[in-house]
Design a protein around this nucleic acid. Structure first.
Length: 875
RNA sequence: GGGGAUAUAGCUCAGUUGGUUUAGAGCACCUGCCUUACAAGCAGGGGGUCGUAGGUUCGAAUCCUACUAUCCCCACCA
């Protein structure tokens, strides 16, 4: 059989994914004899296209789930998508616009039909893309946050919280889009730098000739002023405290109040307070019990409460007011000013802060267990630095505004009655019963109830995700829920630590009495090589599917993992994917080498016997290291350990050691050992590079359909001889030194060399003499008690080694190198001596540390002695 | 403005409760090799005093303080 020297991922990846799917290797069902291992996917938005963040995040999840599966756990990774109210509604509105349909012209029902149609058509794209990455989700368990059962859970939770008194209605300032005539979520508001003017307006102080000057960017709102505010510590305004001021043009009297909010440095140090049209002013208004005078209509024109300029648009009014003030000599000056102004993402209209009635969840009680159990590590955040961030947020949590003025989402199950009161029910029918009781009127019908127009915040469904995907609300006693919940690990970005993770913790404790997950692994944010966040606008995000096409899913997966420590942002470089591919190719070629060997039942060479024993121990050592990395969620380090194990230990050392001379056959024992080692390596690599490893697994030999690497048992750690590995290090170092001599002296690897070692510990070299002979191509290795003349020398620890040179050696160059080493070791000795001559050190440092220093001193002195002798013999 | 971090080799990062050489890895770089698995490879090599300034300590990359720079989250300037 001839195999290509270049590994081609495209030809095998689809094949193996199909094979895994066809054999249902991803599927999971409760099995009492096995330990469950569960991950729920952070559901991507149905509007989403796979981006680098998803790639990273899902690669990590897949590594964890594949490893757990191979460890014999009942691994279950639940996939799904999020309905994403705002983003999806915007997409649908745009699509309709292209068709010439305005949202305002169709009914809610019609809109929802279009929206569902859109969801059915595009909503699954992102999950299809995940399959290309190799994600081994249990696709039979796919859920959607707005599907029937999950929506029912949302409604049930709303009812439950309402009954507990955690849900209330309240006034809140929303971002109003006067053009779209709708409220916008914060993330739909785009702040832009705008050139505007700062108007300095004179307000007369009541019963005096003096006036105050107030700087504002919005003179058209003076008619809505409820107070003038100064900083209580501002001595400049001592004389007007407690007095009143007169609003120009309309001559209404307002109080002068004091509040810390006012920045004495800004403008004139006086602030006009307009509670109805500014969020900060609104809060000041609450603190000081001020009225909210709303002078702006939904369409941005002034209403009759403004008294003047009624009907004018706010921007027209701004200009007119400025003119009127100037004419009345109440405008001191105008200044050019740039400020950040919020614009609607959809219509680009300038946002008008507007008061409106919204639904809230009281957070005080919900937060408690979610807070405590993260602080005491019952739920572990990885890396732990996020505990600080979490703590701060939880301690300052504000009530959660859960209503959104949208159509796409779960409609709030509150129903208004004719008298203005409302009832909450799981169904309209249930609401009707409550309404009848409330009104004490059995005659009313469903037609008398008017359901709230708003839908719930998307997070109000996603916070239930770990529970609702297992139908924990529908049937808390069901087998799946009992078996899989609480889930094990959650992998997500730190940007949604509060929006999502914290709220899931709250929901978990509130509705199940249990935590929703044990560990939360917070990945970093994927940035470009210049450290910029990847974004559509910058166009600096590579298309993940293109990357997979060019570098293979395995290459991209390992590329991402190689660059990411948990919680640290990672600067993504395509080169890492190349490195990932290179690594795959290296393994592929190692496999080709083994596969190509002719095997004979001949005696196993001494070097191979030793090499087999050595690699077995080395593998165990690395496996231990890998386990350790995994236990700390150091995925990147775990992969690097596998990488070095395969590339350095297996390929560069082991295979070179057992490789038969050109044209000769390999002994059966070593061949079989190499196959076993290769299989073990495939197992530990599989979670990272599933496709290539599965391919090689099946090429090693004919296998039964059910004998798939994906479900093969992960190696279990065995005891091993650590000295075997440690002593071999000495041999490998010696080999490197001899190769170094060859390189620096231009001696061909084919030319045999002699080596003399001056040592007290012959055994350690004797042990690995076969390694040294083969890898360094020695003709002869001898031990000596004397210096060897006309030789190049080097040190292994404090043992001096000599390689005799034919002809004369460059004495000056040798001297130079010896001197260099002598200088270094002398400097080192000096620092050690300094430590040891310090009584305080000797007295207060632990005995062990002092012993180590003494040993260092002895070694250094011995080495200096031989170095000096060598120098002397050269001169 | 409030909060949270980070700063170690050209780049990306390790360095686990302060003490095993005068700090490690991967990549990049330099030199030599088309050596019979792999030139997307092999062998060898150079490179940092750990952001700056103080402090604690017998001992600091590691702990403390200040400063500087960068990043993230939240709130957004009349």
């Amino acid at each position: 059989m001839s195999l290509s020297t270049k590994y081609d991922p495209t030809s095998i990846e689809d094949k193996w994914y199909k094979y895994w799917m066809d054999n249902k290797f991803f599927a999971s069902k409760p099995d009492k004899n096995k330990e469950p291992y569960t991950i729920v996917i952070p559901p991507p938005n149905v509007t989403g296209q796979l981006h680098m963040g998803h790639m990273l995040n899902n690669t990590i999840q897949d590594v964890l789930i594949r490893r757990a599966r191979m460890q014999g756990k009942e691994a279950c990774w639940v996939p799904g998508t999020d309905h994403a109210s705002i983003a999806t509604e915007a997409k649908v509105v745009n699509l309709l616009k292209e068709k010439g349909i305005k949202k305002g012209d169709i009914s809610r029902e019609e809109f929802m039909e279009h929206a569902w149609e859109w969801k059915e058509k595009y909503g699954g794209i992102i999950l299809q893309q995940l399959k290309k990455l190799g994600a081994s989700c249990d696709w039979d368990r796919e859920r959607f946050t707005m599907e029937e059962d999950l929506s029912a859970a949302v409604i049930e939770v709303f009812n439950d919280l309402h009954e507990k008194g955690y849900i209330y209605r309240g006034i809140r300032m929303v971002n109003w889009d006067p053009e779209g005539k709708t409220a916008l979520a914060d993330d739909e508001v785009i702040f832009k730098e705008v050139n505007s003017k700062l108007y300095y307006i004179k307000y007369l102080i009541e019963d005096s000739d003096h006036h105050l000057v107030i700087a504002t960017t919005r003179p058209e709102t003076i008619m809505a002023d409820a107070a003038i505010c100064i900083n209580p510590n501002d001595d400049r305004f001592k004389h007007i405290k407690g007095k009143k001021a007169i609003i120009p043009l309309i001559n209404r009297s307002i109080p002068i109040i004091e509040d810390d909010y006012v920045d004495m440095e800004f403008g004139t140090g006086c602030l006009k307070v307009t509670p109805a049209h500014d969020i900060n002013d609104y809060e000041i208004g609450i603190r000081h019990n001020l009225p909210s005078i709303d002078i702006i209509n939904d369409d941005g024109t002034l209403n009759d409460k403004a008294e003047i300029l009624v009907g004018d648009d706010r921007f027209v009014a701004r200009k007119k007011i400025a003119k009127l003030l100037k004419e009345a000599d109440q405008l001191e000056k105008e200044e050019d000013y740039t400020s950040n102004v919020g614009h609607s993402e959809r219509t680009n209209a300038v946002i008008e802060p507007k008061l409106s009635m919204q639904w809230f969840v009281k957070m005080e009680e919900l937060v408690k267990p979610a807070y405590e159990n993260v602080m005491n590590d019952t739920i572990q955040l990885i890396p732990p630095k996020f505990k600080n961030t979490y703590k701060h947020w939880m301690e300052n949590v504000r009530d959660w505004c859960i209503s959104r003025q949208l159509w796409w989402g779960q409609r709030i199950p509150a129903y208004y009655l004719s008298n203005g009161e409302y009832v909450v029910g799981k169904t309209p029918e249930e609401a009707l019963e409550k309404a009848k009781m409330k009104l004490n009127n059995n005659a009313i019908t469903l037609a008398d109830l008017r359901q709230d127009e708003d839908v719930l915040d998307t997070w109000f469904s996603s916070w239930l995700w770990p529970i609702s995907v297992f139908n924990g609300f529908k049937d808390p006693e069901n087998e799946d829920f009992n078996y899989y919940y609480p889930t094990n690990d959650l992998v997500t970005g730190p940007d949604i630590l509060f929006f999502w993770v914290a709220r899931m913790a709250m929901a978990g404790y509130e509705f199940t009495g249990k935590k929703p997950f044990n560990n939360v692994y917070l990945t970093g944010i994927v940035r470009d090589t210049q450290g910029r966040k990847m974004s559509k606008q910058l166009g600096n995000s590579p298309d993940p599917l293109d990357l997979i096409k060019t570098h293979g899913a395995d290459g991209v997966r390992s590329g991402l993992l190689l660059s990411s420590a948990a919680g640290n942002d990672l600067l993504f470089d395509v080169k890492l994917c190349e490195q990932g591919w290179n690594f795959g190719n290296k393994l592929w070629n190692a496999f080709r080498l083994i596969k190509g060997w002719e095997v004979k039942e001949i005696d196993t060479p001494v070097v191979s016997v030793k090499a087999n024993a050595w690699f077995e121990a080395r593998f165990e050592e690395a496996l231990l290291e890998i386990e350790n990395h995994f236990s700390k969620f150091r995925i990147s380090d775990a992969l690097m350990t596998v990488y070095k194990l395969i590339w350095d230990d297996f390929c560069s050392q082991y295979l070179e050691l057992i490789k038969p001379p050109y044209g000769e056959a390999i002994d059966k024992e070593s061949y079989e050992a190499s196959i076993i080692f290769l299989e073990d390596l495939l197992k530990v690599l599989h979670p990272f590079m599933p496709f290539l490893t599965e391919e090689i697994w099946h090429q090693i030999k004919e296998r039964d359909t059910k004998d798939a690497l994906i479900i093969t048992h992960y190696p279990i750690h065995k005891k091993f001889d650590g000295n075997l590995v440690k002593d071999a290090e000495v041999a490998f170092e010696l080999i490197t030194q001899i190769r170094n001599i060859r390189a620096s002296k231009g001696i061909s690897p084919k030319q045999g060399l002699k080596l003399f070692i001056k040592t007290d510990n012959e055994a350690i070299y004797q042990e690995y003499i076969s390694f040294i002979n083969k890898m360094a191509n020695l003709d002869e290795l001898q031990f000596t008690t004397d210096k060897i003349e006309n030789a190049i020398s080097f040190f292994i620890k404090s043992d001096e080694c000599f390689v005799p040179m034919e002809g004369s050696i460059d004495v000056e160059k040798e001297k130079e190198e010896l001197q260099k080493e002598l200088d270094y070791i002398s400097g080192f000795l000096k620092s050690v001596k300094k430590k040891l001559s310090n009584d305080k050190f000797v007295n207060s440092a632990p005995e062990k540390v002092v012993q180590i220093e003494k040993q260092k001193k002895a070694d250094a002195e011995a080495k200096i002695k031989t170095l000096e002798a060598s120098l002397k013999s050269l001169s």
